[in-house]
Design a protein around this nucleic acid. Structure first.
Lengths: 195, 195
DNA sequence: ACGAACTTGTCAGGGGCTGACAAGTTTGGC
DNA sequence: GCCAAACTTGTCAGCCCCTGACAAGTTCGT
């Protein structure tokens, strides 16, 4: 990686840090891009050269995390039930969330506080599902109904992820996140799905 | 209902109709509020007096449908499994979708074609969940983990609803929507959830 | 050192949305 | 029918998000 790209990444991180701080203090909607840019010492126009949208300063890179989950899912043993495999595929996310509990809580608190951030967050799920659904379909084997079964499992799992985050935040970040995620999965899924 | 309120509702419906038509033809993002307003014979400012946001002309009243689902869920027999009860609670929505298949398909096609419309659509789920979660919690009885189990079931069910819509659209609206919804539910849910 | 590649700020402009205000219309009591 | 109150409408001004274009400055590889 060139030096230029390296500094660019550093500046990017600095802006994101400043942005998260301001959003947490004053609220996402009550903080303009100009505010963030000024706090980071750049122009408003330059902010958008680092982040296509205001929300992206909080959400971060969605693709990377998506592929991490996809690889984990693809590596699960074939005998494992779909639902259990999905839970396992999300383990890297859960582990990261527990390892960086403080920051994760802050981010998710900010995200949950704004409709446009929630929206952007859910678009991430849509992106993930496009990667995960083909893997899940292969795992399910021949079934009628096209992508519906695979997609239903994937989205239900991602819903569990979000519900777990909400529950974890509601508990003030007490306990391990992975455990809350387990509870969410156990509340929904079948070990042996019908059809 | 007063005469004034009646005409207001009629104008509202006319604008929504015109808007949906334009959005379907040119795309949601490529159509400005001004365009819709001009097509409806009003000013852009007046559009926002009928709809708080551009998206609302497509999405419609979210609260009404939410309460319909909530009432149906509350009326399900206590012995029924949570997952089966959720499926039954969505039956009014499915029935409406099948009864107005043409329009439902059009709306969902437009919604799926724009990120901001998808976002608005998912905010509706959030609203519904706030109504449904307490009912589901009561149905589940005493469980550890606060709202997590109830919320996980609710959101997983709403995910199935959306996946079913996507599947139905992908099939060009062939067959009954309720049947696609059944498939989605069967792919995910347990009759007897753990914990 | 020097040209190429990249970054930055400024300016201009489109589009969503809101508050304020004046002009016009409808409503309900008389 | 008449009139005051209530409501609707268009216009104007303004904030904010986001983008393209351009000129000025900086950095990189040779």
């Amino acid at each position: 990686m060139g030096l230029r790209e390296q500094t660019r990444e550093a500046v990017r991180a600095a802006i994101a840090e400043r942005a998260l701080q301001l959003f947490d203090e004053r609220g996402f909607d009550a903080t303009s891009v100009e505010d963030v840019a000024a706090a980071a010492g750049i122009s408003g126009r330059s902010f958008h050269r680092y982040f296509p949208a205001k929300e992206d300063a909080v959400i971060g890179d969605a693709t990377a995390a998506g592929h991490l989950v996809a690889e984990t899912l693809a590596a699960r043993p074939a005998g494992e039930s779909p639902w259990r495999a999905m839970r396992a595929a999300l383990e890297p996310i859960a582990a990261l969330s527990d390892a960086n509990a403080e920051r994760t809580l802050r981010v998710m608190r900010v995200v949950n506080g704004s409709a446009s951030l929630r929206a952007r967050h859910l678009e991430k799920h849509l992106l993930w599902s496009r990667i995960l659904t083909p893997i899940m379909r292969e795992r399910l084997g021949e079934r009628p109904g096209g992508d519906v079964p695979a997609q239903a499992i994937v989205f239900a799992a991602l819903s569990c992820l979000d519900v777990a985050y909400a529950g974890w935040i509601a508990a003030g970040g007490a306990g391990r996140f992975a455990q809350v995620l387990d509870l969410a999965f156990a509340s929904v899924g079948a070990e042996e799905p019908g059809q």
